[in-house]
Amino acid sequence: MTTADPRLLALVAGEASGDLLGSLLLRGLKARWPALRSMGVGGPRLSEQGFDAWWPSDRLAVRGYIEVLPRLRELLRIRRELGDRLLGAERPDVFIGVDAPDFNLDLEVRLRSSGIPTVHFVCPSIWAWRPEKVLKLKAAAEHVLCLFPFEPALLAEHGIAATFVGHPLASVIPMEPDQGAARRRLGLTPEGPLVAILPGSRADEVRYLADRFLRAAVLLRARRPDLRFVIPAAPGLKDRIDAIAAAHPLGGALTVVAGQSHDVLCACDLTLIASGTATLEAALFKRPMVIAYNMHWLSWQMMRRKRLQPWVGLPNILARDFVVPELLQDAATPEALADAALVWLEEPAKMQAVQARFTELHHSLKRDTVQLATDAIEKILAP
């Protein structure tokens, strides 16, 4: 294949984290193949790379079992229409599903059975929960691009071809973040402790977590009047977060910004954070954290039965230890969140120790992700 080869790429990225990962990958693919055209489901970061978003990625931003039911018909319709279009006049040379396994794997099975090469970027967490996904993954993906070093060997046991490509954010996020510069970019004063609040990138996450995080902030402020807080609102959620924040007496101690989650994580000293991809981003910024999650009680009962490990947060899973606290479901009370945050703030030696652990983690995940990923994709595309 030459760099001028006008390849056609289809890609589906669900929610903000998939949009970010997909945009980093697409940038590298376009550097190798400048004539590449891309389309599918994506968000603003992919669109900045010239991606033709037939549907926005936030249409796929759902979680849990019960919560998805009101959206199920719409999601099935989008997947069906997308598959029809890709099997019609706009048939791609390769399809890449970026995470979102509940949406992407069935789509990949359909496309692969019709002769379209398929790649899945981000191994589903079969090592943490829902191990039955490995059978669907084997049918869906010709190749899996893995973020974590232990995953290819695990997939090989099931006959699935895979490549460890590292985590692209490990190359984007600096090993030594500049906290002062990030505070200036956000318009925050440079002095004083700053707590970042990340209640998630989905509307359901904000619904279940934002209020309890903010109630914890009020408790923290009462015990530490020097604390300030900042929330990076995911796309489309700022108005909702502003409304929730207005019900809590934080006043000028709280700043809500649109997006800019990386600047917020770089600027803060500590974060209260929803379990998910953002916890790994916080670890790469070397920020101590308190991980929390809360969802519909029935979804929680169904999900907890499928867990294979004691940890839920990615930093803890990768470290195989509770290096940061996890407060899940009923345990995620405002009082418990505030108490856990205060432990970090009052024990600087503990903060330094976890930052050292996160630096080791950062080195383990840093690879030339784009080069490794494009090499793997080129082999699939080779005649």
Rank of each mutant, 00 (worst) to 15 (best):
V94C: 14
R77G: 01
M1K: 07
L60I: 03
A216E: 09
E132A: 13
A319E: 13
A13I: 08
H167K: 07
M351G: 12
A247M: 11
E81T: 08
L227V: 13
V257S: 04
L314D: 03
D58S: 14
F51T: 14
G276P: 00
G14P: 02
G166K: 13
Y65C: 12
G28T: 03
W55R: 15
L86Q: 00
R59W: 03
S364H: 05
R37N: 08
A217E: 07
A233K: 11
A382N: 10
E142L: 11
V12W: 00
R304E: 06
R185I: 02
L24T: 05
E205T: 12
A267Q: 12
L337R: 08
A61N: 01
A340S: 14
L24P: 08
V144Q: 10
L86A: 00
T118E: 09
A16H: 15
A141G: 07
A253Q: 11
S125H: 00
S57Y: 07
D178G: 05
L69N: 00
P168L: 01
V324M: 09
L342W: 04
P6R: 04
P232T: 15
I317M: 13
Q309Y: 04
D368K: 13
I160S: 11
I380N: 05
D58E: 15
G251P: 04
E48V: 11
A216F: 09
G200V: 13
V206A: 08
R212I: 15
V323E: 09
P124W: 03
L372Q: 05
L186G: 06
E360C: 04
L86C: 00
K306G: 09
L60M: 08
I96A: 10
L25P: 13
R130T: 12
V62P: 04
G115A: 04
D339Q: 14
V206M: 11
L209Q: 10
R287H: 02
G14I: 01
M351N: 01
A245E: 09
A4V: 14
E15D: 15
W300H: 09
L155I: 10
L227M: 09
P310W: 01
R185A: 13
A338S: 11
L169V: 03
D84S: 11
A13F: 06
G200A: 05
A217M: 05
V122P: 05
E48H: 07
A353N: 02
A128G: 08
G252Q: 14
P190T: 12
A140F: 03
L82V: 02
A182R: 12
L21T: 10
S201K: 08
